[in-house]
Design a binder for these strands. Structure first.
Lengths: 218, 218, 218, 218
DNA sequence: GATGAATGAGCATTCATTCAT
DNA sequence: CATGAATGAATGCTCATTCAT
């Protein structure tokens, strides 16, 4: 049985213990190498205990992803002020890096499994679309405000700039910096913001000047 | 024994048949789901045949990666003309996308396995470093030529712009467009080049004007 | 995992059941022909059950040897009365034959595997050394007591007389009498004792006469 | 096909090469660990070559045993002079040790396989019987000559003394001295002869005196 | 709720043996 | 004669999953 209804207090605790244990293992060994018995023994439980709360390792992993996606959605809903794009980009990037750092385990697994697992791939697809859509929306607003060049398709640009940020974060946090030079997160954040700004043809003076007061409300 | 000393013509053919078979399966099911017997039966051979040429699926996969890395190295060595950056970026990006498209199977697996396999992770790390180093070299030359802004660390910028291109390509080719809007490769190429150019502060007129005649020789 | 930390009563029983099953098979088919599934099915268990308690057939076999070696050590520690050598030799030989008979299975395998397996060879080497050392000790004491000829190296003599007894027992019990004439164990025991006695130059009258009262202590 | 008729000169050479190769491997790894491909590659041949001359490793091993048994038979037929038992025992033992040393590989395998292989067991049984019979015959003659005690069953005694010699030789030569103290072969030979002589109650003076001139001719 | 014993399907791997060249 | 490619039966071993206690 995997129904989570009628769980006693102790039961709910055990369930969480298993989730945390799985997350830990995903971070250190990835999905491919995580065994059910690893999860339980790492949680200080017997093998059979797992099945009271989950059906298999696929399910517990999806559960962790759902947890993360929920927080991601919240992040995406946070306001972006096009009237001060430089500061906003800096802030957004900073928050995004924090988010990635915190969820490195699950995000790494998302990438790993997307290759193999259609359900996870769909999951990821959806998440990225939402993420890119939010950027595209901001870009379009920026164009209307005259602070962003209008000769580039905002959607494609959003996907590219988003890709840049995401993959840099992925390498930095989920891959322990693989491929990258070792610089401070602050420097990385600043540089990436610069590229965003100038990549989008943002002109700080222009931006300051014309920015009306419309904040995004998603 | 593996990698037999003396392979006959027929033996060499069989070995290649197995490599192609494995590549095919990696593309469709990923590393995690690829069985040895899948490889052999897909190649029209018996299970035992595999072991005459490879020790296990890990090895044959690394073999495929090595093949790809070699071609990658060649790609990276190709000339980049800073005196005409816009055209050069377009050309490079185009070639990069072609490369990614051709090797989508192995590149996807590279990402999948990096989470799990230290050897593959090291492999990828190395490749990305070479790729980013080549970009950084070009950027530094551009700064010296006065066609690129000098207020950004070329190394970090290289890693970010490289990330953008790579991850966009990854999603587009290895993930069948997951997360992305469906646009033509030409449009995508054009947009990404625009971002590169303006992101790096390249001014076409400036570039045209000041560009001396030094082509990179690596 | 093998040699689980916490075995329940039932677990301990199953483990013993496997040991007995393996012992039986070693006796009938030898190590070379014993399969893991033979062991489990002979014990009325599924194939997988084996691996909860042992890692492979090599380990379970060593386990059986260790069991036997422990009893052997006990046997070797049993007292030998040099003041009445004839009776003592008879008694020792008798006990030795009993021991060999009881452990014929494992002893046969010890011989079989010694040819092939360094660990088993070392095992056997050690056991024989302890066995021969005990005999040599008795012989030296006998020489001091004047009941044993002093023109023979006690160590070599111990190894030879020990070899005689061991190999005769081996043929008789572990090889089902291969090569040997069919005589009663009592007769065999008597004859072997005669050879020991006269081979060592023991003279019964002498022995009776001069024997002081020192029993071995070790 | 395994018929050895109509072998060309080259064929006969290849066959011998395989036999020597197998013997070598038996000496170093034992029967259990000897693979067909080991035999052929060690002989510098391809795997398929084996089957032109032998059917399987069992057969080639028996072939080697037959070779050895033939020489053994010759050894057993060699004369034993009961009129000078001490010298004769010394000489016989010496020759026996030489024989064992030369054939250590096959003799070790004989022991190894006897546990498992009925055919080999029968082989060995037969050999030992012949060996013991020859000793028993000599002992009986010695009894008739009055140079050997008549209170011991010559057959059992033969088996025991034979066992002693054989097993000592086995440990010394086939097991690389396992369990034994390191002494010169000469010393070992002398000691074993002493035990034979006195074990059988041989009195040298008596022996010299009464020995008639009948040499055994089998 | 928790335990850990037991199961058995699923794969990897080895190696003797055959056979076309 | 010799080669080495290919086969496939035989086994080992792992691990998710069930279930009696």
């Amino acid at each position: 049985m995997t129904e989570q209804r009628t769980l006693t207090e102790k039961g709910r605790e055990t369930r969480l213990r298993l989730l945390r244990s799985a997350e830990q293992l995903l971070a250190t060994q990835g999905y491919a190498n995580m065994r059910i018995t690893d999860i339980t023994s790492n949680a200080g439980l017997s093998a059979g205990a797992f099945y009271r709360y989950f059906t298999d390792r696929h399910q517990i992993t999806l559960e962790l992803m759902r947890e993360m996606i929920d927080e991601m959605a919240e992040f995406i809903r946070s306001p972006f002020d096009e009237s001060d794009p430089k500061r906003s980009v800096l802030e957004s990037t900073h928050k995004y890096f924090e988010f990635y750092d915190e969820h490195r385990a699950v995000l790494g697994v998302l990438v790993e499994m997307s290759q193999t697992d259609a359900q996870v791939a769909a999951f990821w697809d959806e998440t990225k679309r939402a993420f890119y859509a939010r950027i595209a929306r901001s870009l379009r607003r920026g164009v209307r405000l005259g602070v962003i060049r209008d000769d580039i398709d905002p959607q494609i640009a959003a996907e590219m700039l988003g890709s840049m940020t995401e993959f840099y974060a992925f390498q930095r946090f989920a891959m322990n910096g693989s491929g990258l030079t070792d610089v401070s997160t602050a420097d990385a954040t600043r540089t990436i913001a610069e590229i965003w700004i100038s990549g989008m043809g943002l002109n700080e003076q222009d931006a300051q000047r014309s920015a009306p007061d419309d904040t995004e409300t998603d």
